[in-house]
Structures are given as structure tokens and as C-alpha cells.
């Protein structure tokens, strides 16, 4: 009987259209495949995507939603809630500059002003040469040796304006 009326497969979870490159798409799918069985998998997946691509592309959101059987709104809500997840590609190096009280007590506001003027960008911006993105951060746990900043995952304490310039130019020289 069933052979007389072949069942039509109706794709209810078609892959949403996207502008992701093939490499981006496979990085997102790889992260989902590897981590989606974890309880509370969404944050680990977003971390894995950002680690692979340096940001969470807008078009990755529907793809992740499909893989986790969540709504796009749910995934978007999570990506946008957390300050750490970036929605656009950053510069080659990300400088996280501490704005919190312990660093304020040692001149963080002046360092922030120097950083913005010397890089000619505001927070969340990227320098014209694509080398450096500047982000605020609220405590790096280095409160006895401030002012502090983190370049990529490298922490620096007692950062003066001169030291800031030296660290930035070292980063520029690195790939």
C-alpha cells in the first residue's frame, strides 16, 4: 500500500539562506556537531564559533538555531546579551582595556583617553589598518597592578601611555 503513495519528504528544517563563506559555515556546523549534546550547549557553541572565526556572524545565528532546535530569536537574544560575543569581524588583535574602579584609582581614565586618541578610535572600533580593535572590560582581576589591559589573551599590568604605545606597535608587527 505504502508503495502506491510514496511519501513526500517535506523539509521542515531547511537550511536558512546565508552569506556565510564555506569555511565559516563549516566552522559553525563543526562547533554545533561537536558540542550540541552538552546540557546548556549554546554558550560553549558560541565560544567555539568565536574562537574559530573571531566573531559570531549574523548569518550563523539561524544556522545554530536550527542545529539546536531553538528559535532564531532565542539564539539572537543570547548572542546580544553577552558583551564578549562580537557581531562583526574585529581587527587582528583585540585590546581589552579595563575601566573598573581599581584601575580608575591608578589613572585608567587618562589611559583610556590616550588609547582612543592614539588609535583614533572609540570603544568597539577598529583602527583604519585593521590591526587593533579596542574594547572596554570591567575588571581583569589584576587590581593590585593596574591600570591593566589584555591583548588577545595576554594580560599586562602597570600600563603607562608609553607602554601602551609599545604594546600596540609590537602587536602591529605580529601577524
Amino acid at each position: 500500500m505504502s508503495s502506491q503513495s510514496p511519501r513526500r519528504v517535506i523539509p521542515i528544517k531547511a537550511e536558512p539562506p546565508s552569506n556565510l563563506s564555506a569555511a565559516e559555515r563549516s566552522a559553525v556546523l563543526e562547533a554545533c556537531a561537536r558540542l550540541k549534546e552538552l546540557p546548556g550547549a549554546l554558550l560553549p557553541i558560541l565560544h567555539a564559533v568565536q574562537e574559530a572565526l573571531q566573531f559570531v556572524p549574523k548569518d550563523a545565528v539561524p544556522l545554530i538555531a536550527r542545529e539546536l532546535n531553538l528559535s532564531v530569536a532565542e539564539v539572537h537574544g543570547v548572542v546580544s546579551f553577552y558583551h564578549y560575543f562580537r557581531h562583526s569581524r574585529p581587527g587582528r588583535h583585540v585590546v581589552h582595556l579595563c575601566r573598573a574602579e581599581a584601575c580608575q584609582a591608578l589613572g585608567a581614565p587618562a589611559l583610556e583617553a590616550h588609547a582612543k586618541s592614539s588609535l583614533k578610535i572609540e570603544f568597539h572600533g577598529t583602527t583604519a589598518d585593521g590591526a587593533i580593535s579596542l574594547e572596554p572590560v570591567y575588571c581583569l582581576g589584576n587590581c593590585a597592578l593596574g591600570p591593566s589591559l589584555m591583548i588577545d589573551e595576554e594580560l599586562h599590568g602597570r600600563v603607562t601611555a608609553d607602554r601602551f604605545d609599545a604594546l600596540v606597535s609590537q602587536s602591529r608587527e605580529r601577524a
Binding site: 573598573a100 574602579e101 581599581a102 584601575c103 570591567y138 575588571c139 582581576g141 589584576n142 587590581c143 593590585a144
Partner: peptide
């Protein structure tokens, strides 16, 4: 999630 500025004992 030791977020308080001025604290680093957990770290």
C-alpha cells in the same frame, strides 16, 4: 565569575 573590581582571590 569574580567580576567585582578590586577582587582577585578566586583567580
Amino acid at each position: 565569575d569574580e567580576g567585582d573590581s578590586g577582587t582577585f582571590s578566586d583567580r
